[in-house]
């Protein structure tokens, strides 16, 4: 009985301490998370001034694609889209794709991946993804060269390159649809 009592006391004190630390760090954790995401956003959307619209994800082909549109004076300037590249070398690759109002790519960031260190991870370097900058669906074939497209695959990481390329293309397609509906209905926060 006494033993259980002591364990209870220790657990109680520990719990109290932890709730204190939790409350103390909660806001900072939120801020850090937001800052990290905002940094990625700034890379893919260099033209973004300070804020993006908070809108629900777009449905596309059984998927929900989170979208972060930038709107100035009621005109859509572009958007960042969080798309999933399927069939990477090790699972899916989460990519943030930035698109401007001319429907060309302004930047990409790899948010999450499990690719091979030193090979597939090169997809996160601008030296590789820089080739997408300023490209649009009508003038650029979003396929690696091996598959008859215009994308230079990373040496020895064709599968990763293919997956990221698919994701970037998907981002452009989803943006085109979103821009179409935006022009009809304006920004919708629903």
């Amino acid at each position: 009985m006494k033993n259980v009592f002591i364990l209870t006391i220790i657990s109680l004190v520990a719990g109290l301490c932890l709730s204190g630390v939790y409350i103390g760090t909660k806001d900072q954790i939120e801020i850090s998370k937001k800052a990290a995401f905002n940094n990625s956003l700034k890379v893919v959307l260099p033209f973004m001034k300070d804020k993006y619209e908070d809108v629900p994800p777009v449905k596309y082909d059984m998927e929900e694609v989170p979208i972060y549109p930038v709107v100035e004076n009621g005109v859509l300037q572009g958007a960042a889209l969080q798309v999933i590249g399927k069939n990477g070398y090790a699972g899916n690759i989460k990519v943030l794709v930035g698109v401007d109002k001319n429907q060309t790519i302004t930047g990409i960031q790899i948010l999450e991946h499990k690719e091979t260190p030193g090979l597939g991870t090169k997809s996160a370097d601008e030296a590789w993804w820089g080739q997408f900058k300023g490209k649009s669906l009508d003038k650029f074939k979003f396929k690696v060269k091996k598959d008859g497209g215009d994308v230079d695959a990373i040496t020895a990481a064709t599968i990763t390159s293919r997956s990221v390329t698919d994701a970037v293309q998907k981002g452009l397609v989803v943006y085109r649809e979103y821009a179409g509906s935006f022009n009809k209905m304006g920004v919708s926060h629903e």
Binding site: I10, S11, A14, T25, Q28, I29, S32
Partner: peptide, 16 residues
């Protein structure tokens, strides 16, 4: 319990 408490503290502080 003692160890887990400190680990959680590290976890939270590092995340922040």
């Amino acid at each position: 319990v003692v160890i887990a408490t400190f680990v959680t503290i590290v976890d939270l502080v590092m995340a922040a």
